[in-house]
């Protein structure tokens, strides 16, 4: 598959932006600016940009607790996101969602999700909508290896298969569900094998190679758009940080970590781009600098935003009830 140079540059740009966003989130969490839980996407940045490059704003995604990369790749506004992580009134969710619940209907982002395995079913609903309305949209469902042991994973793959729903199930197999390594949490190596149970294609690719992911995702998205039904796409990768910030990740063997660090998608892809004359070293540097500047601007924006009025806690529980909700 010939992949345009412009697209390669865009992929790198997005990967770098996500890396910088996550590095900033790491710092800001450590310094107490970001409350709650933060699950970072560092090490997995090749996947979401490559998958979302196959989508338009009309297409949907469902996401997970580790969702910053997914929503940024799908076009979420970086300033509103940072403001939400800070718990500000003007953040994406008016300070009611936080890191695990970023959503943007206009961009087709049906929400990051704090419940492992929940997005699978929601993607079936989006797929059903598309089918009933007869459009050629698709829905991408991002999820981790750990979630493939939830009943919802199996229910959803089955439902999507019998209804031929336009869904691409993208498994980010980072080989851990918190401290449980994949070989301890399931008895298979390739999660893609589970597609066979539902008679849907199961494809396994190197999740640290954005071009491999892009190629496989393009095919899966094309199939979905053409009404041929869902695909299970497994992207093998590694989370470089702990499960959440604050988890030292002592359960990850040193050699294993070193092995995967040498496959960090960012330097690898940068080197590939230079080697293949897509970008020069200077152009790479310029992209890196501008990503950093964009993040700094988002932090500045988020810092300057107001915190929510406590009164706003009663708003948006329902579309139409506020007074009763107030009583306690």
């Amino acid at each position: 598959m010939a992949i345009a140079k412009d697209l390669m540059r865009d992929l790198y740009k997005q990967m770098r932006l996500i890396r910088e966003f996550e590095s900033a989130a790491q710092r800001l969490f450590a310094s107490g600016k970001i409350p709650g839980f933060v699950h970072l996407y560092i090490g997995e940045e090749a996947i979401a940009p490559a998958v979302c490059a196959c989508l338009t704003d009309e297409d949907y995604i469902t996401s997970t607790h580790r969702g910053h990369g997914h929503v940024l790749a799908k076009g979420a506004d970086i300033k509103l996101m940072m403001a939400e992580l800070f718990g500000k009134a003007t953040g994406y969710c008016k300070g009611k969602g936080g890191s695990m619940h970023i959503a943007d209907r206009d961009k087709g982002i049906l929400g990051a999700n704090g419940i492992v395995g929940a997005g699978h079913c929601i993607s079936c609903g989006a797929g059903l909508s598309i089918k009933v309305k007869g459009t050629d949209q698709v829905c991408v469902c991002f999820f981790g290896d750990g979630s493939t042991n939830q009943g919802t994973f199996h229910e959803s793959l089955n439902m999507a298969s019998i209804w031929k729903l336009p869904i691409v199930f993208v498994c980010e197999n980072n080989h851990y569900g918190i401290s449980m390594s994949q070989d301890r949490h399931q008895a298979i190596k390739d999660i893609a094998d589970r597609g066979a149970s539902y008679n849907i294609p199961g494809i396994s690719v190197d999740g640290n190679d954005p071009l491999a992911v892009y190629e496989a995702a393009s095919e899966a998205v094309r199939r979905a758009r053409e009404g041929k039904g869902p695909t299970l796409l497994e992207c093998k990768t590694y989370r470089q940080r702990g499960h959440f910030e604050g988890d030292p990740g002592t359960y990850k063997p040193k050699e294993e970590q070193a092995g995967w660090l040498s496959k960090d998608p960012l330097p690898l892809f940068a080197a590939f781009l230079v080697e293949n004359n897509v970008l020069t070293q200077d152009e790479i540097k310029a992209i890196d600098d501008s990503a950093l500047a964009e993040i700094e601007a988002a932090i500045e924006f988020a810092d300057a935003q107001p915190i929510p009025e406590v009164e706003s806690a009663v708003v948006d529980v329902y579309s139409d009830i506020i007074e009763e909700v107030r009583s306690r």
């Binding site: 949907y60 469902t62 209907r105 049906l110 929400g111 929940a118 699978h120 079913c121 929601i122 993607s123 079936c124 609903g125 989006a126 797929g127 059903l128 909508s129 598309i130 009933v132 309305k133 829905c139 009943g151 919802t152 229910e155 959803s156 089955n158 439902m159």
Partner: peptide, 17 residues
């Protein structure tokens, strides 16, 4: 698949059905 039935309603409602 009760999880998928209720979840499918959630996803469908979120996307305009």
């Amino acid at each position: 698949s009760e999880g998928a039935i209720v979840g499918c309603a959630v996803g469908a409602a979120a996307t305009g059905l």
